[in-house]
Design a protein around this nucleic acid. Structure first.
Length: 562
RNA sequence: UGACCCGUGGUGUAACUGGCAACACAUCUGAUUUUGGUUCAGAAGAGUCCAGGUUCGAGCCCUGGCGGGUCAACCA
């Protein structure tokens, strides 16, 4: 009964790709094999949009007890580099996926691909074109008009064979000749109008060196690589939809058996208040609008990791947005929700004051330090508790005191009482200002019987404040991040560039005071600064200088109303 | 003026072979709380782009519109 219910729920939440896979399984296609691949080009860093594809590719394989290959789509040596290979692998592993021993490269297949090209030539299905790219483009036609055939279209097979072979031995300069598939210059699909499948490139390849002088184009490598690897479901984003007929055409001419991989397209990720194209991200880095690919404001996986996002939160986010064929605009708020939800369960609560105001407890003994017991995480008792020092002078948050507070202000003001988290209830007796009218000090008295755990500790007071003992406080650099762009769709304006919407306040560096236990914090450790937000330790942090990043603030119903 | 894809609360998704439009985020109440966090209870918000058609019955099928996206790199 219960099982049936769960079945129903799973069925209901199944996305269209899972439906396709299940239908294939039902029909016994591919002997019940499910095999996917994640095919990054090693020419840049992975971002949250790639994570969406990774979660799908590896997720489908996992769910249907299949396999997912990692395959680097390295067919363009002028843009690719090993540097990226390593970062891509690191990011995928960080997300929690494993390609086992199946790390492949399109360049592994250059030999087979070359043989296939020769085979197409022999069948009269490919020819060498001596024209320039401009000439070829001018003959391509437009979406509404058919193209016109190249003057080299009917070149004899032997001549094609000879020329293609010589293209690869370095006899001809780059750009002088290409190999084209002979399909249909009048096709309504531009990709079928005799697409270029090989071009001459002298740039050394990061894996094959200078072995090859001709390199296959994406379309001539992708489907075939899928075929060579036994991929059953080749999942890619919507813009490749128009490539599918070419994908199928090539696989059809390549295959030697009944098996054929099939391409299915899903919607790419769009996130509000950010950009997700390699070109624009590169521009942010190059124009130094951010401090590199791992800047915590970047939507790259390395940036998100440094910011304090957890792999689980990114995976949960991906589960929540789903996979469809609709152009989606996802709210970055959902990503923030996902990380709060995850960090709420796992981040230890600590005391930190970011905008300090000195508070003196006038009736508390001088030169005395009490160790206050405090719970590490109310969401998880197993995380235990620790001691934090308390003394006569503490720092509280400047925002937690108002000279003339409104009625609904649950914090400190003249004559008001407030609880200090894990310590005492205090009452504001006085405050001091400087010449300019700035409040510089708040004087309070405490009630000894209200010590946490003490007899009067449960007395009701409106607010609870976080604090740090002034004498024990540790200085820390705190980096507060806000959205990089001030516009919900920075790349969605015809007359303006994303750079026009850069948020000047996206990074604010301040000095805060944190409790002494944080001296032991390790790089990338997550914390909740009580009442402030989730923070993690930046890799810039050292034993001499703590550096924290704000991952995300806490939800704040009060601030919203204010 | 072509081909292909797509239109469901503000956003993202769901609704098995037609059967009371569901969920999450966001929003708004209220309760609890030694975090204005969390948690809990609840509310509001779409009648499914439009117009026809088939049907006892259409978000789902058919026709025609309208709107959005993609495609004319020797990029992937």
């Amino acid at each position: 009964m219960i099982e049936k219910k769960e079945d129903a729920r799973e069925k209901r939440s199944m996305n269209f790709i899972e439906s396709i896979v299940e239908e294939d399984l039902r029909q016994g296609r591919d002997d019940g094999r499910v095999h996917t691949r994640f095919p990054p080009e090693p020419n840049g860093y992975l971002h949250i949009g790639h994570a969406k594809a990774i979660c799908l590719d590896f997720g489908i394989a996992e769910k249907y007890r299949g396999k997912c290959n990692l395959r680097f789509d390295d067919t363009n040596p002028t843009k690719e580099d090993v540097e990226y290979v390593d970062s891509i692998k690191e990011d995928i592993r960080w997300l929690g996926f494993d390609w086992e021993e199946r790390e492949y490269y399109a360049s592994d297949y250059f030999g087979q691909l070359y043989d296939f090209a020769v085979d197409l030539i022999k069948k009269g299905l490919a020819y060498v074109d001596d024209q320039s790219s401009e000439e070829i483009a001018s003959q391509k036609g437009t979406p509404t008009e058919p193209g016109i055939p190249s003057p080299f279209r009917d070149r004899p097979i032997d001549e094609n064979l000879d020329l293609f072979q010589r293209m690869n031995t370095g006899e001809f300069p780059e750009g002088s000749r290409v190999l084209r598939a002979k399909i249909d210059m009048a096709s309504p699909n531009m990709h079928m109008r005799d697409p270029v499948i090989y071009r001459i490139l002298y740039h050394p390849h990061h894996r094959t060196g200078s072995t090859w002088k001709v390199y296959p184009m994406y379309d001539f490598a992708h489907g075939q690589s899928d075929y060579f690897e036994g991929v059953t479901h080749s999942l890619c984003t919507l813009e490749f939809e128009v490539h599918r007929p070419l994908y199928d055409w090539l696989v059809e001419h390549l295959r030697a058996d009944d098996y054929r991989p099939r391409q299915t397209e899903f919607n790419r990720l769009n996130l509000s208040y950010t950009v997700l194209s390699k070109r624009m991200l590169l521009e942010l880095v190059e124009k130094e609008h951010v401090n590199g690919w791992d800047d915590p404001r970047m939507p790259t996986l390395t940036g998100l990791r440094r910011r304090g996002y957890t792999p689980e939160s990114i995976r949960n986010f991906n589960d929540s947005i789903g996979y469809t064929k609709v152009m989606a605009n996802n709210d970055v708020g959902l990503l923030e929700f996902a990380v709060r939800e995850d960090l709420n369960k796992r981040a230890p609560r600590v005391m930190a004051v970011l905008n300090p105001l000195k508070l003196i407890i006038t009736n508390y003994p001088e030169n005395t330090t009490e160790e206050m017991e405090t719970i590490n995480n109310p969401e998880d008792e197993s995380m235990g508790s620790r001691k934090i020092p308390f003394s006569r002078e503490i720092y509280i948050e400047r925002e937690d005191f108002m000279e003339d507070p409104p009625r609904k202000f649950f914090r400190l003001g003249p004559g008001r009482e407030v609880r200090l988290k894990s310590a005492y209830i205090i009452k504001c007796e006085d405050y001091k200002k400087d010449k300019d009218g700035n409040i510089v000090e708040v004087c309070c008295t405490y009630d000894e019987t209200t010590r946490s755990g003490g007899p009067e500790a449960n007395r009701k007071v409106k607010g609870t404040l976080h604090w740090v003992s002034a004498k024990h406080a540790v200085e820390a650099e705190v980096r507060l991040y806000d959205r990089l762009f001030s516009d919900p769709e920075p790349a969605g304006h015809k007359d303006k560039k994303p750079a026009d919407f850069l948020n000047p306040g996206s990074l604010r560096v301040i000095t805060g005071y944190v409790e002494p236990s944080l001296k032991e914090a390790k790089s990338l450790d997550h914390f909740q600064f009580q009442r402030l937000g989730y923070f993690n330790v930046d890799p810039d942090s050292s034993s001499g200088k703590l550096v924290f990043n704000r991952t995300v603030s806490l939800r704040d119903n009060w601030a919203k109303k204010g």
